Amino acid sequence: MRSISPGVVSAWSRGLMLGVLVALVSASASMATPAANVLTPAQRHVADELVSIFENSSPTIRYDYIEDLHDGCGLTAGRAGFCSATGDMLETVEAYAQRRPDNGLVAYLPVLRRRAASGSASTDGLGRRFVAAWRAASRDMAFRAAQDDVVDELYFEPAAERAAAIGLRTPLAVAIFYDTAIEHGTAQDADGLPALVARTRRRARGLPAAPHITERRWLMTFLAVRRADLLAPHNRARRVDWPDSVGRVDALAHLLRAGHADLEPPLAVDPWGDNVFTLTR
């Protein structure tokens, strides 16, 4: 089901993400709950597998994945759908260059910088040789570590901090916010994670830290808000492909209804209605 491109996000949602991380974290520092900020290695592994299923239809992390989905994001690649038009692909290659200055992707940094600066979906200069270089680099543990670090910095850590700030405590809650950050981004736009939280707060009449709101009820409302946004995103460019990705929200809602708040395997996930992925230890 990767052809439906469920994991892509726009330059509108993902651009300039580092500039908003301070805003996301500063409000949460005094309220952070360790249980929400840190998953056990086993729980984090499950959360990563869920994202991988939604992004690449495989619980195995696809560091080697790269494709032009013709969706306005340029090339989409790696474990989190890094995009050449939105800047996170650039950050990944730069992080790799710090570890391996002579790696095969360094030559493409000027092109990636131009694409990220302009938000251009053009793949000129990022043709077959770049694709081959990405796939070759994916066999290098240093490149995999670079992808992991960018995911942590741009997506997982901001999502976990936001979850803690509003009173979410369970591992599944963190996983839900993590997946939302991957797809919607954490920037201050109408489709980003902060906007979805704000709309959920209004609809639920509060945050899960409030005594009259259970975490389960708040998260179900959040997933409904996110689903509605995927069906009719404010960024019109995403109206082509985002509606096809509502299965990832439905799969998360199923886990929530089934009581898998601790992310304890086995877990059965069927986001697209044609293939059940069973996560085990």
Rank of each mutant, 00 (worst) to 15 (best):
A133V: 04
L267N: 01
V111K: 14
T86H: 03
P158M: 06
F130A: 04
A32C: 11
N103M: 06
R44A: 12
F54E: 01
Y96C: 05
A268K: 10
S30T: 08
V276A: 08
S138Q: 09
R201M: 12
T40I: 10
A80C: 07
A253N: 15
H260E: 06
D262E: 15
A173D: 04
E264A: 08
S84V: 02
G259H: 08
R62Q: 14
D250A: 13
G15K: 05
R169A: 11
L256N: 03
V197L: 15
T92E: 00
A253H: 13
H70R: 12
E49H: 08
G247R: 02
T123K: 00
R239M: 11
L105E: 03
F177M: 15
A181E: 08
G119W: 06
D229F: 00
F222C: 08
H234N: 12
F130M: 09
S30E: 10
R99D: 06
A42Y: 00
F177S: 07
E94C: 05
A268I: 01
L90Q: 06
T40D: 08
H212D: 13
F82W: 13
P59L: 01
A232F: 11
D48P: 00
V150G: 03
A165E: 14
I166N: 01
H234T: 13
H254L: 08
